[in-house]
Design a protein around this nucleic acid. Structure first.
Lengths: 233, 233
DNA sequence: AAATCAAACTTGTATATACAAGACAAAATC
DNA sequence: GATTTTGTCTTGTATATACAAGTTTGATTT
């Protein structure tokens, strides 16, 4: 069972995403939410803290919680995946390499545990289009622990994180990311439709999950010519 | 008076920065900290939450709080080399334009309130060297509210955030950042010692503070050839 | 009418407590 | 000796409550 504060967080998030609360709107007060969800302020505040962390609201002493959405960047840096921000309507995902069982690459930039080497990984690569412009190329390595029939799920329509949560009970917990600016090579220039040598935002991310040893690695290459990456802290 | 949870946060942060807790160490348990600081778990947990947000620790259910990395603040993000973090010893700061009262630029990428326009801003620019290589060029705009004699403080030796906290009682609360990869122009190529057209990591950040209307804007340009930017979530 | 004050909101901080659940080591069992 | 169980540590979630402090609104006073 999902904890109450997460239910409340997701409810509010959904309402903001759906436009029921617009930018600048005041969210119901903490006491109001307590009444509606039949809970107490600490629990409500925990949910609101998550919303702050994800950049959905800011709180103001004596005033209330103000909605800051809509965001106009690719919300890649927020924990729960890359669909928030640009809007699902404008985001299409093309699978370049379908999810399949593989062994880890020879030169992997992260240290792997013995258990991870043992079980291997699931690899996939995707190209994301924002308003039909190829904008983000992503390579993903998922430690292949307890993920039966993973490859059959449609990752084009469903977000990776949703699939993991829904079908495999795996929740992304925390992570780390490294960021560089690099020059597009031949492959990237073709994928992202830019000239060779064009500046590309490159990220390497590792994410812990609720299952020990099940670590997700994601290597991103983003054309920031038209869009940009945004995050909140 | 500083809230107790912030005192605790700063104490722990200081100890981690000073190396009293090293990477991988277990922090004292929540109940242990309760005894030492004569407080209760919610307060301790609030302090630990801040440490998580800043990437100092990760918490593990049933295990404890593990120190992840002694961080060296370039503000919120930290700068890393291929293996080790960039310590304070290897970091030098050169002031290019001293802090001085100015009016806001004509074309400012953020919306400013009437009050902000009224009071103007304090501008400074700095160039940071890692192991004597120019790596990060930063332009900072601080809303000039209640900041008497701000320009006299030595920002080369003391961090901007420390100065604001110590002498002006201003705490940075939350913020937002946008990230691009761009090509070095003439000015950037000279400052950062790269060729024109080299890929440069560019960030625009805005930070709210404990004083309303006192917003800090920071525009960063980072040569990620040797080092990279890292953060945690 | 304008300025002042008080009340009624809001969020911020803090205490006290309870039980659930994960991790781990020692003790009991096979 | 190997396995299972139990107890005790840890953090996670949740309730109930209290007061401080910032914001707004409306009544009171001038």
């Amino acid at each position: 069972m999902l904890p109450l504060y997460k239910v409340l967080y997701q409810d509010l998030k959904k309402q903001i995403d759906a436009g029921e609360f617009k930018k600048g709107d005041l969210l119901p007060s903490e006491n109001e939410l307590c009444r509606v969800y039949n809970t107490t302020r600490p629990t409500v505040r925990q949910a609101l803290s998550e919303l702050i962390k994800m950049g959905y609201i800011t709180r103001h002493h004596g005033k209330g919680s103000i909605v800051t959405e809509p965001k106009n960047g690719l919300g890649i840096l927020s924990l729960k995946g890359s669909t928030a921000g640009v809007g699902k309507k404008n985001l299409k995902t093309q699978i370049l390499v379908n999810a399949h069982k593989a062994s880890w690459p020879k030169e992997f930039p992260y240290e792997l545990s013995d258990r991870q080497h043992e079980v291997g990984c699931i690899y996939l690569s995707r190209l994301r289009y924002v308003n039909d412009f190829p904008t983000l190329y992503e390579e993903t390595y998922i430690t292949a622990i307890d993920l039966p029939r993973f490859t059959m799920h449609n990752l084009a329509k469903n977000s990776l994180f949703e699939t993991l949560s829904k079908y495999h009970n795996v929740e992304v917990k925390e992570g780390e990311q490294k960021i560089w600016a690099i020059s597009a090579n031949e492959k990237l220039s073709q994928l992202l439709g830019v000239n060779i040598g064009a500046p590309i935002l490159h990220m390497k991310r590792s994410m812990q999950t609720s299952k020990p040893n099940l670590v997700i690695y994601s290597f991103l290459y983003c054309n920031t010519g038209e869009y940009f990456i945004q995050d909140y802290f």
